[in-house]
Amino acid sequence: MNIFIYAIVFWLAAWALNQYLVKQSYDVVMTRVVNVFVPLLFGVTLLVLWEGATRGFEIPKILLPPPSMIWERITNSLPILWVDFKQTFLHAVLIGYVIGCGSGFIVALLIDRSPFLKRGLLPLGNFVAALPIIGVAPIMVMWFGFDWQSKAAVVIIMTFFPMLVNTVQGLATSGHMERDLMRTYASSWGQTLLKLRLPCAMPFIFNALKINSTLAMIGAIVAEFFGTPTVGMGFRISTEVGRLNVDMVWAEIAVAALAGSTFYGIIALIEKNVTFWHPSQRV
């Protein structure tokens, strides 16, 4: 019980500190530091509360292990985690993501040349993007077998439509004036595309890339619930839940979370450098 009270005290102190920090005014560098520090402190507080609650109330480890125990499990079973990571992330997610986004992009470029197709495919693409596509997972497992190929296929289907819809929308954003200017330069379709319309479409394309990074992880992990060789993050999660090795499950989740956020972060970083001109990127 005592430990939990300490955790609560820590939380209150951290909250007060955060309240104080955001009320001050800073120069540019300090603002950045504070912007990173405040959410970080909040995250640490959550972990402390978690640890305090599980130890203080003596919650059974099967229900919710404390973070320290999960960390111990992570450091102890690095080889297994690495093998699962390789199977799920490096194979299924990355390959599926690249093919899915790439084909979505290319199809969008093809559609863009035909207004008829654009009017027909865009509403359908929007519709499909709202569907529970994850449901094709059992079918893909049946078609492509238990290994990572079937998971990559699920990821391809899930990432294709957001990319298609966003790219088509993005290509339509360049204004008439700008396009007319390109015409007066006698630029070809390809030149207009490369120098005007693709740069204009970049915010939309990166939006799709970001959405897809999450979708790809979800797709690959859930597809593993439908059948895998005895390796992979989704497989490990579903089997260890059955054996009530909850700390191992949380270790996998931590790895998945880390991989997911890093993946997202890298794309956000590239976006920042590519679309530096966009209002949302200027501070």
């Binding site: 909250w15 955060n18 309240q19 920090l21 955001v22 504070v34 912007n35 405040v38 959410p39 402190l41 909040f42 995250g43 959550l46 994850i134 990074s213 999450t214 992880m217 979800i218 992990i221 859930v222 993050m233 989704g234 999660i237 996998e252 989740i253 998945a256 979370a257 997911g260 956020s261 993946f263 997202y264 972060g265």
Partner: peptide, 20 residues
Amino acid sequence: AMDKSVMPWVITSQTIPILA
């Protein structure tokens, strides 16, 4: 304070493959 501390975690929460 909530804006600065919660919002980044709301976004991070979605980069985690939660369905796992």
